[in-house]
Simulated scan of single mutants.
Amino acid sequence: MGRSITPVRVKDVTIGEGTPKIIVPITGRTPDELHAQVEALSGQVADVVEWRVDFFGTLEDTASVVAQAHAL
């Protein structure tokens, strides 16, 4: 028997129902790398862009992480 999937809503995108979604992770270790990855997405189709903060080089510096989240 198949498992039931509970849809998840991220802003105006519902994941788990309808057509498959395109979710693109960004994984830069530095603000410059993140900026370059975001710029590379310009003009591309993506339903959700996910920042994989666990790759960020100054993960232990909360202020740095928060500042980068605002910049993104």
Rank of each mutant, 00 (worst) to 15 (best):
Phe55Cys: 07
Arg3Pro: 10
Pro25Phe: 08
Val8Gly: 12
Val10His: 02
Pro31Gln: 02
Thr58Lys: 11
Arg3Ile: 11
Lys21Thr: 02
Gly28Glu: 01
Lys11Thr: 09
Glu50His: 06
Trp51Tyr: 13
Arg29Tyr: 00
Ile22Leu: 15
Val53Gly: 05
Thr19Arg: 11
Ser4Tyr: 15
Gly16Trp: 07
Ala46Trp: 00
Val49Ser: 06
Val66Asp: 15
Glu33Ile: 00
Glu33Asp: 02
Asp47His: 12
Arg3Phe: 12
Thr27Val: 06
Ser4Arg: 08
Val48Trp: 12
Gln44Val: 02
Ala46Glu: 00
Ala36Val: 01
Asp54Leu: 14
Glu60Cys: 12
Thr6Pro: 01
Val65Leu: 08
Asp61Tyr: 11
Arg52Ala: 11
His70Cys: 13
Asp32Phe: 08
Val13Asp: 15
Val48Asp: 04
Thr62Lys: 10
Pro7Ile: 01
Gln68Asp: 06
Ala40Ile: 10
Pro20Asp: 04
Ala69Asp: 05
Pro31Asp: 02
Val66Leu: 09
Val10Leu: 09
Phe56Ile: 07
Asp54Glu: 13
Pro7His: 01
His35Glu: 12
Thr30Ile: 03
Trp51His: 07
His70Pro: 00
Arg9Glu: 11
Ala40Gln: 13
Ser64Ile: 04
Ile5Trp: 04
Val8Glu: 07
Val49His: 03
Leu41Ile: 10
Gly43Tyr: 06
Leu59Phe: 08
Leu72Lys: 00
Val8Asp: 05
Asp47Ala: 07
Lys21Asp: 00
Val48Phe: 14
Gln37Lys: 15
Glu60Gly: 04
Leu34Thr: 04
Ser64Lys: 13
Ser4Val: 14
Arg29Pro: 00
Leu59Ala: 07
Pro7Leu: 01
Arg29Ala: 14
Ser64Gly: 13
Leu59Glu: 07
Leu41Val: 08
Val8Pro: 04
Leu59Ile: 09
Val65Ser: 03
Thr30Asp: 03
Val49Asn: 06
Leu34Phe: 05
Phe56Glu: 06
His70Thr: 10
Asp54Arg: 14
Val49Arg: 07
Gly2Arg: 12
Arg52Glu: 12
Gly43Glu: 03
Gln68Ala: 15
Val8Met: 09
Gln37Glu: 15
Ala69Ser: 11
Ile22Lys: 10
Asp54Ser: 10
Thr27Cys: 04
Arg3Asn: 14
Ala67Met: 05
Asp12Gln: 15
Thr14Arg: 11
Ile23Val: 13
Thr14Ile: 11
Ala63Trp: 03
Ile23Pro: 00
Ala46Gln: 00
Phe56Ala: 06
Pro31Ala: 01
Thr27Arg: 10
Asp47Glu: 12
Leu34Asn: 09
Gln37Val: 15
Gln68Leu: 09
Gly18Cys: 08
Gln68Ile: 05
Ile26Tyr: 01
Asp12Val: 03
His35Gly: 06
Arg29Phe: 00
Val45Lys: 08
His70Gly: 09
Gly18Ile: 13
Val66Lys: 12
Ile15Thr: 09
Arg9Leu: 03
Glu33Ala: 05
